[in-house]
Design a protein around this nucleic acid. Structure first.
Lengths: 202, 202
DNA sequence: GGGCATTCGGTACGTTTGTACCAATTATTG
DNA sequence: CAATAATTGGTACAAACGTACCGAATGCCC
């Protein structure tokens, strides 16, 4: 039910540093599907199909394991965003809408869907209590804000930074509300309208 | 460090149904300060200064304990919102701004500040995985949306419900970002501007 | 005041937890 | 190729966990 990619002879059990990443992968999977409480050494090892002791060998403690996993999730997420922004800038569609789509829509490759979203917000919440994670959260939101703000500026926004903050805030808020209530309406029309309204405001 | 209100002879150890509420209080305190993982029967009992067995007497299981705590937090929060809305409607200030203030500002009585905010979002995230909690989260956001939407309508909004969704989303998103990054800027100007921009959009 | 249901609170039990340990294996270096 | 370091993986252990149990204390009705 929660086994990772099975180890065929062609896809042998990872060794060395690759093992580290396999463990982080397993952590993210568990956070997404069950929650941070469920991240135990034994379960991580089971999902990664690695021996129990590999978790303590590659990570000093459970805390370190969680922190590293969330850092990885943040890096992937920002990379995904920057890709979308770059692709949208050269493409034909409205770059702002394209980036909002990338934030909201998680069916594209590189984003594991609803589960990945839950993990993302779990990281944000964890950061509220751990200074080490706050730094990651800061870099993360800063990348989002700068990307959005740049696009808004070239779209003619009079206050690109303020507009970016409102757009990102609305996206995050609507996403977490949707997760919490179980609704599954399309958020894009709402965000597109918000972007239009903000750009129209002198 | 995490002891609840100490039991003086004047403030005796609660008995009967009051004990139930004291336990829920302790759960919320732990969720806010340490996180949902830290909610164990023993710690709840310790914080509430009650015997271990009281937790299993008043709640069937740990799951039930967490669910009931979220429900209590939601009830308090919506009550606080409705109070603010009622007070603002008769007061002199702009009712919409007043309600946004109530959502964002947690230094007023009835809201235990940053800790209470963290607990709120933690429980929202928990709802993403537990259907029983989703129902509570639905009622919760619905009260917010209806309140805001009513106020926006009488303020002349052409799309009160849509505007309410964006306002609430932005408030939630900005709040969680602020928690995650450790920033402590005043969110009210941003939300006031958003309300103004939305109302100005024909 | 006696009888009965509820509540209290100490304790016990089996399970799961994080982490330590160490012999066996694999990689690396001189 | 020997030797030295890094990695692997099975196992052990004390602590903490959720929950069950049950005699003592308390409140309530007749």
């Amino acid at each position: 039910m929660m086994t990772a990619t099975t180890n065929t002879p062609e896809n042998p059990r990872p060794r060395g540093a690759a093992r580290r990443e396999a463990l982080l992968e397993a952590v993210l999977k568990i956070v997404a599907e069950v929650g941070p409480d469920a991240v135990t050494h034994r379960r991580v090892a089971e999902v990664a199909q690695l021996p129990l002791a590999s978790t303590t060998y590659w990570f000093d403690s459970k805390e370190h394991l969680l922190t590293a996993a969330l850092e990885l999730a943040a890096e992937r997420d920002t990379a995904r965003l920057l890709d979308s922004a770059a692709a949208a800038s050269t493409g034909g569609t409205d770059p702002i809408d394209a980036v909002m789509d990338a934030i909201v829509d998680c069916d594209d490759p590189g984003c594991a869907g609803r589960g990945s979203l839950i993990a993302t917000f779990a990281l944000l919440l964890e950061a509220a209590r751990r200074p080490a994670l706050q730094e990651i959260a800061q870099r993360w939101t800063e990348v989002y804000l700068q990307t959005l703000s740049r696009l808004l500026e070239s779209a003619g926004s009079a206050r690109p930074r303020d507009d970016a903050e409102l757009l990102l805030g609305a996206a995050d808020g609507l996403l977490i509300e949707q997760l919490a209530t179980g609704a599954d309406e399309d958020l894009r029309p709402r965000l597109h309208r918000l972007a239009a309204v903000l750009l129209a405001s002198a």
